[in-house]
Simulated assay, not measured.
Amino acid sequence: MQSGEGKIAGAADVGGTNTRVGLVREDGKIIRIEKFPTPVQGKPGDIPLAIASTLLEIADGIPLAGLGVAAAGPINAREGYLDHPPNIPFNIVPITAPLKEAIRLPVTFRNDCRAAVLGEICAGGARGYDNVVYITISTGIGGGVFTNGRVITGRGGNAGEIGHFPVDTTYNLPCTCGLYGHWEGYASGRGIPIFFREWCTVHDLPCAEMTTPGILRLTAEDIRYSGFRDALAKVNGRGLSTVIAAYDPECIILDGTVIQSNPDLLDQALMCTDRYLDLPVCLLSPLNGDAPLIGAAMTVFHPEMI
């Protein structure tokens, strides 16, 4: 470690497809990173073992302050395990205990969006704000809430599941959780094609062809219907309105492949938000998708915030 760089922590961001493990400085700078397919073909314990072996390899003797792990929920932060994750084919995935045993360092474990809001507070677009909501709109929709010095975690670490806010009763589309009318079921990367197909059906308009049963091919040209853009904007506006009314943030940071690739969706949604409370600052994350990984490291450096 060079003089002036500060401490270094290990960080892991566990996804259903890939897992990233990195070394992150106290100022949020990622200095090393490795990505590998999340091992889902064997046993649940293969996941923490892969994280540990990768961390030890990339650290290569560098002293670490600890390891922070972020993962899409549901999680049990208190007991340290993933609890029936929808994108990983195991009921329970132990995280904290096997990692502590393997690396002999302190280990923190948080939902990826709860970690991400801390990443934005410490090293991203939310620096200087005391009340922040982080929203990711990608394959799913998730959120993290920071208020007055702490991340809101709830009983088991799952507070801020904004993707499951109800936003519609007209189309009553199913969500991945099995219930209906939730934001994620309409405006996520998984939900938009389904919403589009249903909207076209209701309005008796031609729709993109199905490539395989249950999967819709959706292109930018297919969303040429301004009416569908309006419908999607209204749904996103309802989601943002609920976030604003629930948490009264100074700043909302938006992230994820859907919103980062289509920034106009934010402008359209803001036109459809309620004005019961003043609009906060709303902006796209400047961290290039690394907010969960950086935030995982920040849970090591700033345990008082979690």
Score class of each variant (00 low, 15 high):
Gly295Phe: 12
Asp248Gln: 10
Arg114Ser: 15
Leu99Cys: 11
Ser261Glu: 13
Glu34Lys: 14
Val24Asp: 10
Ala220Asp: 14
Ala187Val: 11
Gly289Cys: 11
Gly295Val: 14
Glu198Cys: 01
Ile141Lys: 01
Leu118Ser: 06
His182Arg: 10
Glu161His: 03
Leu218Ile: 14
Trp199Ile: 00
Thr139Gly: 13
Asp255Trp: 10
Glu209His: 11
Pro86Lys: 09
Lys7Asn: 13
Leu284Gly: 07
Ile223Arg: 15
Gly289Lys: 06
Leu49Ser: 14
Cys175Tyr: 03
Ser226Leu: 12
Gly163Arg: 01
Asn158Cys: 00
Phe109Glu: 03
Pro39Trp: 01
Tyr180Arg: 15
Tyr247Trp: 14
Gly295Arg: 06
Val133Asp: 13
Asp60Arg: 11
Gly157Cys: 02
Ala115Asn: 09
Met210Ile: 12
Ile8Asn: 09
Tyr247Asp: 08
Gln260Phe: 07
Ile244Cys: 00
His164Phe: 08
Leu287Phe: 02
Ala11Tyr: 10
His302Leu: 15
Phe90His: 00
Asn76Leu: 09
Glu184Cys: 14
Glu101Tyr: 00
Ala50Gln: 07
Val235Cys: 07
Pro44Asp: 09
Asp168His: 12
Asp60Pro: 07
Pro206Met: 01
Val167Phe: 10
Gln2Asn: 11
Thr212Cys: 08
Leu254Arg: 00
Arg25Asn: 12
Ser188Cys: 10
Asp112Tyr: 07
Ala77Gly: 12
Arg155Ser: 03
Lys35Trp: 05
Lys7Pro: 09
Gly6Trp: 14
Pro174His: 07
Lys43Trp: 04
Thr201Cys: 07
Ala72Ser: 10
Arg155Pro: 00
Val40Lys: 15
Glu198Met: 09
Pro249Lys: 06
Val243Cys: 12
Thr153Asn: 13
Gly143Asp: 04
Leu173Gly: 04
Asn148Val: 03
Leu23Ile: 01
Ile223Glu: 14
Leu82Val: 06
Thr169Phe: 14
Ala59Thr: 02
Glu250Asp: 13
Gly42Ser: 11
Leu49Asp: 12
Thr147Ala: 11
Ile62Lys: 11
Pro174Trp: 00
Val21Asp: 00
Pro85Asn: 04
Thr273Met: 01
